[in-house]
Simulated assay, not measured.
Amino acid sequence: MKGWIPLILRGSLLALLLAFLAFPGWFEPVFRPLVQANAPAIYAQGSLLSLTLLHLRTVAIATAGAIVVAVSMAIVVTRPFGAEFLPLSRTLVNIGQTFPPVAVLALAVPILGFGEKPTLVALFLYGLLPIFENTLTGLTTLPPAVLEAARGTGMTASQRLFRVELPLAMPVILAGIRLSLVIGLATATIGSTVAAKTLGEVIIAGLQSNNLAFVLQGGVIVGVLAILIYDGLSAVERMAARRVGRA
């Protein structure tokens, strides 16, 4: 029974989130005490469901790009021909963490204009480091005996990579992707400062109108999404670990 309790709680949280996004008016009594008289208690300048989907789309596109680049770089620097590029690769993936996302947006807007594109650049750069470092760790901490066995069976370098190394490293790689996604979910809210359609729009509207209910709505949706995605990917990570015997 104990194992079912977290599952029931997560299911209830997801149901509440979906209900709020689909029928926000149902929850007006909850937020009414947080606003001044005659002020709206529910954000109605746009669809909360649409903003949430657009927010998730932005994060998904940026994270997908970060996965492709970071994993590829980690693979290259763990091969004999690419080992000398490790310091350069680390410098490149650290750029996103060195420059705050707001600074990246400020630099990207004059080049890319307002909207989603500058936000994608900021999230992409910000998401590289955890994926790169976890992929690097996963590929460099594999059991030597397994690699030797793979060589002994006559596998080529590419066969060892795709059939042995990446599957064994997958739980660690997934942990990096999970971290990158959660960071991206929170960071994407600043995209609304450059006219990107994200849940930051709700938070900014609340700050501008001194409406605590709006701020709370945007923040809670992002927080709940982060919890659900974190838990979901943690479960996938555990399944991958059990599958390769690295639980």
Score class of each variant (00 low, 15 high):
Ser72Gly: 12
Ile204Pro: 11
Leu54Ile: 08
Val76Asp: 06
Arg32Gly: 02
Ser209Trp: 03
Arg57Ala: 03
Ile183Met: 09
Gly184Ile: 10
Leu161Ser: 01
Arg163Cys: 05
Gly82Gln: 04
Ile183Ser: 11
Glu133Arg: 12
Val236Ile: 12
Ala122Trp: 03
Ile5Ser: 08
Arg32Ser: 10
Ile227Asn: 06
Arg242Met: 13
Val182His: 09
Ile5Lys: 15
Gly46Ser: 15
Arg79Val: 00
Pro24Thr: 06
Tyr126Met: 10
Gln97Asp: 08
His55Gln: 08
Lys2Ser: 13
Ile5Ala: 15
Met170Val: 04
Leu105Tyr: 07
Pro80Phe: 02
Leu233Asn: 07
Ala66Gly: 09
Gly115Cys: 04
Gly176Glu: 14
Gly3Leu: 12
Met1Val: 11
Asp231Glu: 12
Leu179Ser: 14
Glu165Arg: 06
Thr189Ala: 15
Leu233Phe: 07
Gly154Thr: 02
Ala149Arg: 00
Gly219Val: 06
Thr119Lys: 03
Ala15Arg: 02
Thr156Val: 02
Leu129Cys: 08
Arg151Cys: 00
Leu125Arg: 14
Glu237Phe: 02
Val68Arg: 11
Ala22Thr: 07
Ala74Phe: 01
Ser47Ile: 03
Tyr230Thr: 12
Leu207Pro: 11
Pro80Asn: 13
Asn38Arg: 14
Leu88Thr: 13
Leu18Phe: 01
Leu125Ala: 12
Asn134Val: 12
Ala235Thr: 12
Trp4Ile: 14
Glu201Arg: 12
Phe31Tyr: 09
Pro130Phe: 00
Phe27Gln: 08
Arg238Gln: 08
Leu54Arg: 13
Pro40Tyr: 02
Phe162Ala: 10
Leu21Pro: 01
Leu88Pro: 10
Phe23Trp: 06
Arg178Phe: 00
Ala122Glu: 05
Arg151Thr: 00
Lys117Val: 05
Leu9Val: 08
Leu120Asp: 14
Gly152Ile: 02
Leu56Glu: 03
Glu116Asn: 03
Ala22Pro: 01
Leu207Trp: 00
Thr153Gly: 00
Met73Asn: 05
Leu34Pro: 11
Thr141Ala: 11
Leu123Glu: 11
Ser12Gly: 15
Gly191Val: 08
Leu51Glu: 15
Glu116Trp: 00
Ala39Asn: 13
Gln45Pro: 08
Leu13His: 05
Thr91Tyr: 01
Ile67Asn: 13
Ser180Cys: 07
Gly113Val: 13
Val93Lys: 07
Thr141Ile: 09
Thr141Gly: 05
Ala169Asn: 06
Asn94Gly: 12
Ala175Gln: 08
Val93Cys: 09
Pro130Tyr: 00
Phe114Tyr: 10
Val194Asp: 12
Leu128Gln: 07
Phe162Arg: 13
Ala241Met: 13
Arg246Ser: 04
Ala205Leu: 09
Val77Arg: 02
Thr91Pro: 05
Leu168His: 07
Ala19Glu: 01
Leu16Val: 07
Gly65Ser: 09
Ala60Glu: 04
Ala70Gly: 14
Arg242His: 14
Arg160Pro: 02
Phe20Arg: 05
Pro130Val: 04
His55Lys: 04
Glu133Gln: 09
Pro143Gln: 05
